[in-house]
Design a protein around this nucleic acid. Structure first.
Lengths: 123, 123
DNA sequence: TATATTGTTATAGTCATATAGTACAATATA
DNA sequence: TATATTGTACTATATGACTATAACAATATA
Protein backbone atom coordinates (compact mmCIF):
# COMPACT_ATOMS: atom_id res chain seq x y z
CA UNK A 1 0.00 0.00 0.00
CA UNK A 2 2.77 2.41 0.86
CA UNK A 3 6.19 2.93 -0.62
CA UNK A 4 9.36 4.26 0.89
CA UNK A 5 12.02 6.04 -1.11
CA UNK A 6 15.15 5.57 0.92
CA UNK A 7 17.20 7.77 -1.39
CA UNK A 8 15.04 10.86 -1.22
CA UNK A 9 16.50 12.19 1.99
CA UNK A 10 13.01 12.53 3.42
CA UNK A 11 12.63 10.73 6.74
CA UNK A 12 10.71 7.46 6.52
CA UNK A 13 8.14 8.45 9.08
CA UNK A 14 7.43 11.63 7.16
CA UNK A 15 6.92 9.69 3.96
CA UNK A 16 4.44 7.43 5.71
CA UNK A 17 2.59 10.40 7.14
CA UNK A 18 2.35 12.07 3.76
CA UNK A 19 1.13 8.95 2.05
CA UNK A 20 -1.52 8.22 4.62
CA UNK A 21 -2.76 11.77 4.35
CA UNK A 22 -2.93 11.64 0.58
CA UNK A 23 -4.60 8.24 0.62
CA UNK A 24 -7.25 9.66 2.90
CA UNK A 25 -7.50 12.78 0.80
CA UNK A 26 -8.05 10.78 -2.35
CA UNK A 27 -10.63 8.61 -0.67
CA UNK A 28 -8.61 5.43 -0.92
CA UNK A 29 -8.76 5.30 2.81
CA UNK A 30 -12.20 5.94 4.20
CA UNK A 31 -13.13 6.81 7.78
CA UNK A 32 -13.24 3.58 9.74
CA UNK A 33 -10.84 1.78 7.45
CA UNK A 34 -8.18 -0.18 9.17
CA UNK A 35 -4.55 0.51 8.40
CA UNK A 36 -1.80 -2.09 8.30
CA UNK A 37 -0.66 -3.07 11.76
CA UNK A 38 2.47 -1.39 12.93
CA UNK A 39 4.36 -4.65 12.78
CA UNK A 40 3.07 -5.59 9.36
CA UNK A 41 3.88 -2.22 7.84
CA UNK A 42 7.34 -2.33 9.34
CA UNK A 43 7.90 -5.69 7.65
CA UNK A 44 6.37 -4.59 4.35
CA UNK A 45 8.52 -1.50 4.15
CA UNK A 46 11.55 -3.20 5.66
CA UNK A 47 11.86 -0.52 8.28
CA UNK A 48 11.81 -0.48 12.01
CA UNK A 49 8.70 -0.91 14.12
CA UNK A 50 9.44 2.27 15.99
CA UNK A 51 9.49 4.29 12.82
CA UNK A 52 6.00 3.16 11.92
CA UNK A 53 4.79 3.84 15.44
CA UNK A 54 6.18 7.32 15.21
CA UNK A 55 4.31 8.01 11.98
CA UNK A 56 1.03 6.62 13.27
CA UNK A 57 1.33 8.51 16.51
CA UNK A 58 1.81 11.82 14.78
CA UNK A 59 -1.18 11.14 12.61
CA UNK A 60 -3.20 10.26 15.67
CA UNK A 61 -2.21 13.50 17.34
CA UNK A 62 -3.29 15.36 14.23
CA UNK A 63 -6.64 13.64 14.43
CA UNK A 64 -6.29 11.69 11.22
CA UNK A 65 -6.17 8.29 12.89
CA UNK A 66 -7.63 6.54 15.88
CA UNK A 67 -5.54 3.85 17.49
CA UNK A 68 -6.94 1.15 19.70
CA UNK A 69 -4.51 -1.05 21.47
CA UNK A 70 -5.31 -4.64 20.77
CA UNK A 71 -7.45 -4.01 17.71
CA UNK A 72 -5.59 -1.75 15.36
CA UNK A 73 -5.27 1.65 13.82
CA UNK A 74 -8.17 3.20 11.94
CA UNK A 75 -8.91 6.22 9.87
CA UNK A 76 -10.63 8.73 12.08
CA UNK A 77 -14.23 9.53 11.40
CA UNK A 78 -13.42 13.17 11.88
CA UNK A 79 -12.78 14.19 8.31
CA UNK A 80 -9.36 15.78 8.05
CA UNK A 81 -8.92 18.39 5.38
CA UNK A 82 -6.49 17.39 2.73
CA UNK A 83 -6.25 20.43 0.59
CA UNK A 84 -5.48 20.41 -3.05
CA UNK A 85 -2.91 23.07 -2.41
CA UNK A 86 -0.61 20.72 -0.53
CA UNK A 87 -1.10 18.16 -3.24
CA UNK A 88 -0.17 20.65 -5.92
CA UNK A 89 2.92 21.63 -3.99
CA UNK A 90 3.95 18.00 -3.81
CA UNK A 91 3.61 17.57 -7.54
CA UNK A 92 5.59 20.74 -8.11
CA UNK A 93 8.32 19.47 -5.86
CA UNK A 94 8.53 16.17 -7.71
CA UNK A 95 8.71 17.92 -11.06
CA UNK A 96 11.29 20.40 -9.88
CA UNK A 97 13.54 17.70 -8.47
CA UNK A 98 13.30 15.67 -11.62
CA UNK A 99 13.99 18.64 -13.86
CA UNK A 100 17.02 19.61 -11.79
CA UNK A 101 18.42 16.14 -12.09
CA UNK A 102 17.56 15.75 -15.76
CA UNK A 103 18.90 19.11 -16.83
CA UNK A 104 22.16 18.48 -15.08
CA UNK A 105 22.65 15.71 -17.62
CA UNK A 106 21.54 17.88 -20.47
CA UNK A 107 18.06 16.49 -20.87
CA UNK A 108 15.30 18.82 -21.91
CA UNK A 109 11.66 18.91 -20.94
CA UNK A 110 10.94 17.41 -24.34
CA UNK A 111 13.19 14.45 -23.57
CA UNK A 112 11.22 13.84 -20.41
CA UNK A 113 7.89 14.29 -22.11
CA UNK A 114 8.90 11.81 -24.77
CA UNK A 115 10.14 9.28 -22.24
CA UNK A 116 7.01 9.58 -20.17
CA UNK A 117 4.82 9.23 -23.21
CA UNK A 118 6.54 5.98 -24.11
CA UNK A 119 6.02 4.60 -20.67
CA UNK A 120 2.39 5.54 -20.81
CA UNK A 121 1.91 3.66 -24.05
CA UNK A 122 3.66 0.61 -22.69
CA UNK A 123 1.44 0.40 -19.65
CA UNK B 1 21.46 32.88 -6.27
CA UNK B 2 20.49 29.76 -4.36
CA UNK B 3 17.70 29.10 -1.94
CA UNK B 4 17.41 26.65 0.92
CA UNK B 5 14.14 25.16 2.08
CA UNK B 6 14.79 24.19 5.67
CA UNK B 7 11.41 22.52 6.02
CA UNK B 8 11.67 20.15 3.09
CA UNK B 9 13.56 17.45 4.94
CA UNK B 10 16.13 17.40 2.18
CA UNK B 11 19.65 18.00 3.49
CA UNK B 12 21.00 21.47 2.81
CA UNK B 13 24.07 20.25 0.99
CA UNK B 14 21.87 18.15 -1.31
CA UNK B 15 19.74 21.18 -2.11
CA UNK B 16 22.83 23.14 -3.04
CA UNK B 17 24.11 20.34 -5.24
CA UNK B 18 20.81 20.07 -7.08
CA UNK B 19 20.58 23.80 -7.62
CA UNK B 20 24.09 24.09 -8.95
CA UNK B 21 23.43 21.24 -11.34
CA UNK B 22 20.17 22.79 -12.35
CA UNK B 23 21.83 26.13 -13.03
CA UNK B 24 24.52 24.48 -15.11
CA UNK B 25 22.03 22.39 -16.99
CA UNK B 26 20.00 25.42 -17.85
CA UNK B 27 23.02 27.38 -18.92
CA UNK B 28 22.67 29.94 -16.16
CA UNK B 29 26.10 28.86 -15.05
CA UNK B 30 28.58 28.51 -17.89
CA UNK B 31 31.89 26.69 -17.87
CA UNK B 32 34.44 28.98 -16.25
CA UNK B 33 31.86 30.91 -14.27
CA UNK B 34 32.77 31.54 -10.70
CA UNK B 35 30.48 30.39 -7.93
CA UNK B 36 29.94 32.25 -4.67
CA UNK B 37 32.78 31.69 -2.22
CA UNK B 38 32.13 29.06 0.38
CA UNK B 39 32.04 31.69 3.09
CA UNK B 40 29.78 34.02 1.17
CA UNK B 41 27.27 31.31 0.32
CA UNK B 42 27.25 30.14 3.92
CA UNK B 43 26.37 33.68 5.00
CA UNK B 44 23.81 34.16 2.23
CA UNK B 45 22.01 30.95 3.08
CA UNK B 46 22.54 31.32 6.83
CA UNK B 47 24.10 27.91 7.04
CA UNK B 48 27.43 26.59 8.15
CA UNK B 49 30.61 26.88 6.17
CA UNK B 50 31.17 23.14 6.34
CA UNK B 51 27.84 22.44 4.73
CA UNK B 52 28.72 24.53 1.70
CA UNK B 53 32.13 22.92 1.48
CA UNK B 54 30.52 19.53 1.50
CA UNK B 55 28.26 20.42 -1.40
CA UNK B 56 31.05 21.96 -3.48
CA UNK B 57 33.32 19.02 -2.82
CA UNK B 58 30.78 16.49 -4.02
CA UNK B 59 30.25 18.54 -7.15
CA UNK B 60 33.97 18.69 -7.71
CA UNK B 61 34.26 14.93 -7.38
CA UNK B 62 31.50 14.57 -9.93
CA UNK B 63 33.46 16.78 -12.27
CA UNK B 64 30.94 19.62 -12.34
CA UNK B 65 33.19 22.09 -10.57
CA UNK B 66 36.84 22.95 -10.32
CA UNK B 67 38.06 24.41 -7.07
CA UNK B 68 41.22 26.40 -6.71
CA UNK B 69 42.34 27.27 -3.27
CA UNK B 70 42.96 30.96 -3.07
CA UNK B 71 40.97 31.91 -6.12
CA UNK B 72 37.58 30.29 -5.96
CA UNK B 73 35.25 27.65 -7.27
CA UNK B 74 34.39 27.49 -10.94
CA UNK B 75 32.15 25.60 -13.28
CA UNK B 76 34.21 22.90 -14.91
CA UNK B 77 35.01 23.19 -18.57
CA UNK B 78 35.17 19.42 -18.91
CA UNK B 79 31.90 18.51 -20.49
CA UNK B 80 30.53 15.38 -18.89
CA UNK B 81 30.99 12.83 -21.63
CA UNK B 82 28.64 9.93 -21.61
CA UNK B 83 27.74 7.86 -24.61
CA UNK B 84 24.24 7.43 -25.93
CA UNK B 85 23.61 4.19 -24.10
CA UNK B 86 24.60 5.54 -20.72
CA UNK B 87 22.58 8.58 -21.47
CA UNK B 88 19.49 6.55 -22.20
CA UNK B 89 19.99 4.54 -19.05
CA UNK B 90 20.32 7.72 -17.08
CA UNK B 91 17.08 9.06 -18.47
CA UNK B 92 15.35 5.78 -17.66
CA UNK B 93 16.64 5.97 -14.13
CA UNK B 94 15.40 9.51 -13.69
CA UNK B 95 11.99 8.64 -15.04
CA UNK B 96 11.73 5.51 -12.91
CA UNK B 97 12.62 7.36 -9.75
CA UNK B 98 10.16 10.10 -10.47
CA UNK B 99 7.37 7.69 -11.27
CA UNK B 100 8.00 5.71 -8.10
CA UNK B 101 7.85 8.85 -6.06
CA UNK B 102 4.87 10.31 -7.85
CA UNK B 103 2.81 7.16 -7.80
CA UNK B 104 3.41 6.76 -4.11
CA UNK B 105 1.48 9.98 -3.77
CA UNK B 106 -1.24 8.89 -6.11
CA UNK B 107 -0.14 10.86 -9.12
CA UNK B 108 -0.56 9.32 -12.53
CA UNK B 109 1.61 9.58 -15.60
CA UNK B 110 -0.98 11.96 -16.97
CA UNK B 111 -0.57 14.22 -13.96
CA UNK B 112 3.13 14.34 -14.65
CA UNK B 113 2.68 14.89 -18.36
CA UNK B 114 0.32 17.72 -17.67
CA UNK B 115 2.63 19.32 -15.13
CA UNK B 116 5.60 19.04 -17.44
CA UNK B 117 3.65 20.48 -20.33
CA UNK B 118 2.75 23.49 -18.25
CA UNK B 119 6.35 24.10 -17.34
CA UNK B 120 7.34 23.85 -20.93
CA UNK B 121 4.80 26.47 -21.94
CA UNK B 122 5.90 28.81 -19.17
CA UNK B 123 9.51 28.76 -20.21
C1' DT C 1 56.80 41.38 0.24
C1' DA C 2 52.81 41.82 3.16
C1' DT C 3 48.00 41.32 3.46
C1' DA C 4 43.63 39.79 2.25
C1' DT C 5 40.92 36.34 0.20
C1' DT C 6 39.94 31.78 -1.01
C1' DG C 7 39.50 26.92 -0.20
C1' DT C 8 40.92 23.06 3.32
C1' DT C 9 41.25 20.49 7.42
C1' DA C 10 40.16 19.18 11.97
C1' DT C 11 37.81 18.68 16.43
C1' DA C 12 33.88 18.63 19.11
C1' DG C 13 29.10 18.81 20.16
C1' DT C 14 23.94 18.70 19.29
C1' DC C 15 19.93 16.98 17.24
C1' DA C 16 17.05 14.06 14.33
C1' DT C 17 16.45 9.72 12.37
C1' DA C 18 16.52 4.96 12.37
C1' DT C 19 17.66 0.61 14.24
C1' DA C 20 17.63 -3.55 17.62
C1' DG C 21 15.75 -5.74 21.26
C1' DT C 22 12.82 -6.47 25.23
C1' DA C 23 8.94 -6.18 27.83
C1' DC C 24 4.27 -4.58 28.86
C1' DA C 25 -0.96 -3.54 28.21
C1' DA C 26 -5.31 -3.85 25.95
C1' DT C 27 -8.29 -6.21 22.98
C1' DA C 28 -9.97 -10.00 20.00
C1' DT C 29 -10.65 -14.66 19.33
C1' DA C 30 -10.48 -19.73 19.79
C1' DT D 1 -10.24 -18.80 30.17
C1' DA D 2 -6.10 -19.17 27.42
C1' DT D 3 -3.78 -17.55 23.50
C1' DA D 4 -2.76 -14.60 19.83
C1' DT D 5 -2.75 -10.10 18.09
C1' DT D 6 -2.57 -5.34 18.54
C1' DG D 7 -0.53 -1.04 20.09
C1' DT D 8 2.80 0.96 23.72
C1' DA D 9 6.99 1.93 26.32
C1' DC D 10 11.66 1.77 27.17
C1' DT D 11 16.75 1.48 26.77
C1' DA D 12 20.65 1.40 24.05
C1' DT D 13 23.21 2.20 19.84
C1' DA D 14 24.57 4.01 15.36
C1' DT D 15 24.64 7.24 11.75
C1' DG D 16 23.93 11.50 9.19
C1' DA D 17 23.29 16.34 9.08
C1' DC D 18 24.40 20.50 10.88
C1' DT D 19 26.73 23.72 13.75
C1' DA D 20 30.68 26.20 16.15
C1' DT D 21 35.25 27.25 16.19
C1' DA D 22 39.91 27.35 15.08
C1' DA D 23 43.79 26.84 12.46
C1' DC D 24 46.14 25.97 8.04
C1' DA D 25 47.40 26.35 2.85
C1' DA D 26 47.29 28.36 -1.66
C1' DT D 27 46.48 32.21 -4.47
C1' DA D 28 45.54 37.04 -5.65
C1' DT D 29 46.46 41.69 -4.95
C1' DA D 30 48.02 46.12 -2.98
Amino acid sequence: MFLIDSKSGVPFYRQIIEQVKFAIGRGELQPGDRLPTVRQLAVDLSINLNTVIRAYRELEIEGMLDTQQGSGTFVSSRKPDINGLERQRMLDQILTDMLARASSYGFTIDDLLKGLQQRKENE
